[in-house]
Amino acid sequence: MLKEGTVVFFLINGYIMSGRVINIEGNDEDYNFSIEGYAGCSGPHIIASRQIHRTVFLTQEEAKKYKNNPQMYLSSYC
C-alpha cells in the first residue's frame, strides 16, 4: 500500500509528471488515492490502487518506458 506523501509519476500527453499521494482510503489490498496537483474541474481525481504500474508509476524510469504509449496516460481533461 502506498503511504501518504509518497511521490509517484504519471504521464499526461507524453510528459512525465509527478505528485505526492494524498487522501488514501481503503485497505492494503484495495484502496483509492489522489495525487496532489492532479485534479479536474470537480477536484482531485480518485485513482484505484490497481492503476499502479498501469497509469501511475513508482519511479520516473518506469514512467519513461511508457512515454510513447497513450494507453498508459492519465486523462488530462475535466
Score class of each variant (00 low, 15 high):
49 S>I: 04
74 L>R: 15
26 G>Q: 07
8 V>A: 01
47 I>D: 09
72 M>L: 09
37 G>Q: 05
30 D>L: 04
57 F>H: 05
20 R>E: 10
57 F>A: 04
15 Y>A: 11
7 V>L: 12
35 I>M: 00
54 R>I: 08
78 C>K: 07
62 E>D: 11
58 L>E: 14
17 M>P: 06
74 L>Q: 15
66 Y>G: 02
31 Y>S: 02
76 S>G: 14
56 V>D: 09
30 D>T: 00
68 N>W: 08
35 I>D: 01
34 S>Y: 05
13 N>D: 04
38 Y>K: 09
16 I>M: 03
73 Y>P: 10
31 Y>P: 00
60 Q>E: 14
41 C>N: 15
28 D>T: 04
47 I>R: 08
8 V>S: 12
54 R>K: 13
31 Y>D: 00
47 I>M: 04
76 S>N: 14
12 I>M: 10
66 Y>I: 03
15 Y>M: 08
5 G>R: 13
73 Y>A: 06
19 G>S: 04
26 G>E: 06
76 S>T: 13
68 N>V: 06
5 G>T: 07
12 I>Y: 00
2 L>Y: 02
14 G>D: 01
56 V>N: 13
69 N>S: 05
58 L>M: 06
43 G>W: 02
60 Q>I: 09
33 F>E: 00
70 P>L: 07
45 H>L: 12
19 G>D: 04
66 Y>S: 03
34 S>N: 13
22 I>H: 15
64 K>Q: 14
46 I>F: 11
5 G>N: 08
57 F>M: 02
6 T>W: 02
37 G>R: 06
3 K>T: 06
12 I>H: 00
10 F>P: 00
4 E>C: 12
7 V>W: 01
57 F>S: 02
33 F>C: 06
12 I>T: 05
18 S>D: 08
27 N>A: 03
1 M>S: 11
35 I>N: 02
35 I>G: 00
43 G>M: 03
66 Y>T: 03
48 A>E: 05
34 S>W: 10
64 K>E: 13
63 A>H: 04
11 L>R: 01
53 H>R: 07
20 R>P: 01
55 T>Y: 01
34 S>K: 12
37 G>K: 13
34 S>L: 08
61 E>D: 10
58 L>A: 08
52 I>D: 09
63 A>D: 05
24 I>K: 12
48 A>Q: 14
50 R>F: 12
33 F>V: 01
25 E>N: 15
68 N>S: 07
75 S>I: 15
17 M>D: 15
78 C>W: 08
53 H>A: 03
37 G>H: 08
12 I>F: 00
60 Q>M: 10
45 H>V: 11
76 S>A: 10
54 R>Y: 11
70 P>D: 10
59 T>D: 11
58 L>V: 01
62 E>Y: 11
2 L>M: 08
43 G>R: 06
